[in-house]
């Protein structure tokens, strides 16, 4: 089941995000050059006075066992998945906008909470 995630959404200039030091133990998803979704506790210091830092509960996610995830993605993902680990990728999966985090132990699947029910219906 996909569960609602609670983190920070940070929009700032790319240089500020490149230079940012993220809290220990946090997971940082770089959604775009100017866009980060941060899962984890702790303060973030950014060298951008105009940065947008907002509580973000608009994503839902779940962890999948790598083999099962790859099996599912093989029939639903038209783009080539990254081969290296860890890796972050995003694009259409089963017709929905999905973000994927790959490491040796899991594939973490995220989508907008508003689409979570649809994605679950399209998952194995």
């Amino acid at each position: 089941m996909l569960e609602r995630l609670e983190g920070l959404r940070i929009i700032a200039n790319a240089q500020a995000l490149d230079a940012a030091v993220w809290p220990n133990g946090s997971r940082v998803f770089r959604l775009a050059a100017d866009d980060v979704f941060l899962l984890g506790d702790g303060e973030v210091h950014l060298d951008d006075p105009h940065a947008i830092v907002e509580l973000e509960t608009g994503f839902s996610g779940m962890s999948m066992e790598p083999a099962a995830a790859l099996d599912w993605l093989e029939s639903t993902c038209e783009w080539e998945l990254p081969g290296q680990r860890p890796a972050f990728a995003q694009g259409a999966v089963a017709g929905l906008a999905v973000k994927l985090w790959f490491d040796e132990t899991e594939v973490f699947v995220m989508t907008a909470s508003a689409l979570a029910a649809e994605l679950e219906e399209r998952m194995p």
């Binding site: 959404r9 929009i11 700032a12 951008d48 947008i52 608009g58 907008a112 909470s113």
Partner: peptide, 12 residues
């Protein structure tokens, strides 16, 4: 232009 933009439609 030097701006930051965040779509909050699905978050709020």
């Amino acid at each position: 232009l030097d701006v930051r933009i965040l779509n909050r439609t699905m978050s709020l």
